[in-house]
Simulated assay, not measured.
Amino acid sequence: MLTAAWPVRRHATGETGTSLPAFADHHVHAHLVDIDALPARGIARVLDLGGDPAALARRPSGLPRVTYAGAFLSAPGGYPRGRAWAPDAIVCDVSNPSPHPGVPGGARTAVDAQADAGATVIKVAMNADAGPVPSDEVLAAVVAAARGRGLPVVAHAQGPGQVERAIEAGVAALAHTPFDPSLSRRLLAHAAEAGQIWISTLDIHRGDARARAIAHLGAFAERGGRVLYGTDLGNGLLPLGVNRRELLALQEAGIRGDALVASLTDPWPGHSDADAVRSFIAGPAPTDLDDLASWLSHAVVVPTEELTRVD
């Protein structure tokens, strides 16, 4: 029995089914996909983790509800600068740790630019496998400036030592489950104890990288780590809407039952304001938890007023 599930009747169709809190994808890139298609396929809220802050600020309100980081904060020449999918507007170079506003290339200047455009998180690129990464001084300054604006920092941490650096700097969340081969159990426990959040993005991987990511996420969750469903939508051929393969990978990592639903419905980085809509799935919730991922992938977003509880 799922704690958050309601048995309901849907007025528009007469169907009976199950209602759950609105689902979120905690890692998308809206400039690369048609996010307007997502509510019909189960996603009511998205967190954009790398886009043009001006374009995101202009997006009209409605579904899916979009919160965003704005541009990647990156070392000059670092990831994702120069990638075909990353126009200049989605990358902001940070070259020094200045805490003063208006300093070109300064950490405070970069954070302020995203926050002033409406960002609710700050994204920092720490991909050492793909170029230079911010220094310890710059990273600390970005985290401090973000805290000054009341915003958490989320990092793409990849390559030797980057997950460790993110934890020590006080980065609130990792945009991807780490898939580096050399993460110790002590490090995974440290991440969980520090209260760090990991966004899953397991389905972007294949082979050994996928196996490592699933193993790391399972160990992190076992130690109390907070896990959010996210797909990195826009990265390759991922399905629009609730991704059954992502959910199956989460289950493989041990994120099952209520924990799997919680990864989909967690309101981070804000507070839930999605009471006006719910996720609806025709039919009763499955009694076999092995069937849960496939069942959840059939969700649609509907107005709460369209549903009547029947229990």
Rank of each mutant, 00 (worst) to 15 (best):
Ile214Gln: 03
Leu237Arg: 15
Arg245Thr: 12
Gly161Gln: 04
Ala155Arg: 05
Leu292Asn: 01
Asn127Ile: 03
His26Tyr: 00
Ser272Asn: 15
Glu168Pro: 01
Ala57His: 10
Ala55Gly: 12
Leu174Gly: 01
Gly224Ala: 00
Gly195Ile: 08
Ala249Leu: 12
Ala40Glu: 15
Ile255Cys: 14
Asp275Leu: 15
His100Gly: 06
Ser19Glu: 13
Ala209Lys: 14
Gly283Val: 04
Leu32Pro: 07
Gly148Lys: 12
Thr16Ser: 12
Leu73Pro: 05
Ala282Cys: 00
Thr109Ala: 15
Ala221Gln: 15
Ala40Met: 09
Asp311Ile: 00
Ile167Trp: 00
Gln251Lys: 04
Leu260Gly: 09
Arg81Tyr: 03
Gly150Cys: 05
Asn96Tyr: 01
Ala219Ser: 13
Ala144Gly: 05
Ile197His: 02
Leu247Met: 13
Asp275Asn: 15
Val242Pro: 11
Thr3Leu: 11
Ser74Val: 07
Ala140Arg: 12
Ala276Ile: 09
Leu289Asn: 10
Thr109Trp: 02
His26Ala: 02
Leu238Tyr: 00
Arg41Ile: 07
Arg226His: 13
Val277Ala: 06
Pro303Gln: 09
Val91Lys: 00
Arg256Ile: 04
Asp232Lys: 13
Ala213Leu: 09
Asp266Thr: 10
His26Ile: 02
Ala189Phe: 01
Arg309Leu: 09
Glu306Tyr: 00
Val103Leu: 09
Gly225Glu: 01
Pro267Cys: 02
Gly218Trp: 02
Arg278Glu: 11
Asp275Pro: 10
Gly159Trp: 03
His298Gln: 12
Ala117Gln: 09
Gly254Asn: 06
Arg83His: 08
Ser74Lys: 14
Asp266Met: 11
Pro132Ile: 06
Arg165Trp: 02
Gly148Pro: 06
Ala144Asp: 15
Ala259Tyr: 05
